[in-house]
Simulated scan of single mutants.
Amino acid sequence: MPYALFYQDAKLSKAYPTEADVWNLARKSGLVVDAVSDEERRSPRPILDNDYEIRPCQLDPNEDPDQNKADADREARTEPRLN
């Protein structure tokens, strides 16, 4: 089942093979924040900013989640890192 980033009902990203792939995309885009959800969890857990959601999605015509992931991985390797 492919996953994508959504805001309300609008699909904002390409489809990716796993939910973890979309979390990585969101993290690199600055959409992930750490927050403590309750007293049972002492350590912060990642959540998406501004009511974004990661959820299963339908593929667009001719969309290939594996190719989208490969393209994103290739881009990540060629982008300069700012430290």
Score class of each variant (00 low, 15 high):
residue 77 R to S: 11
residue 20 A to K: 14
residue 26 A to L: 03
residue 66 D to I: 06
residue 13 S to R: 04
residue 31 L to R: 05
residue 16 Y to I: 07
residue 68 N to L: 04
residue 49 D to N: 09
residue 52 Y to N: 06
residue 66 D to K: 12
residue 27 R to Q: 08
residue 48 L to M: 12
residue 65 P to S: 06
residue 34 D to Y: 08
residue 15 A to P: 02
residue 71 D to G: 02
residue 31 L to S: 01
residue 17 P to L: 09
residue 41 R to P: 00
residue 67 Q to M: 11
residue 62 N to H: 12
residue 34 D to V: 00
residue 48 L to A: 06
residue 48 L to R: 07
residue 49 D to Q: 11
residue 21 D to Q: 04
residue 56 P to Q: 15
residue 42 R to A: 07
residue 64 D to N: 15
residue 41 R to H: 15
residue 72 A to S: 11
residue 39 E to F: 15
residue 35 A to T: 14
residue 26 A to H: 02
residue 69 K to V: 03
residue 40 E to C: 13
residue 53 E to I: 03
residue 70 A to D: 09
residue 76 A to K: 06
residue 50 N to A: 10
residue 72 A to K: 01
residue 30 G to F: 00
residue 29 S to H: 01
residue 40 E to D: 15
residue 66 D to M: 07
residue 56 P to Y: 04
residue 59 L to K: 07
residue 20 A to Q: 14
residue 54 I to H: 04
residue 70 A to T: 10
residue 32 V to C: 08
residue 64 D to T: 04
residue 64 D to P: 02
residue 17 P to Y: 06
residue 71 D to R: 12
residue 65 P to L: 10
residue 59 L to Y: 06
residue 36 V to Y: 08
residue 57 C to K: 03
residue 36 V to L: 09
residue 73 D to E: 15
residue 15 A to V: 05
residue 44 P to I: 10
residue 74 R to D: 03
residue 30 G to L: 01
residue 74 R to L: 06
residue 75 E to T: 11
residue 28 K to N: 07
residue 54 I to Y: 09
residue 79 E to C: 08
residue 66 D to P: 00
residue 34 D to T: 03
residue 40 E to M: 14
residue 29 S to K: 04
residue 71 D to N: 10
residue 21 D to I: 04
residue 26 A to D: 05
residue 45 R to C: 09
residue 62 N to G: 04
residue 27 R to T: 04
residue 23 W to Y: 07
residue 66 D to Q: 15
residue 58 Q to T: 11
residue 60 D to N: 13
residue 28 K to F: 00
residue 18 T to H: 13
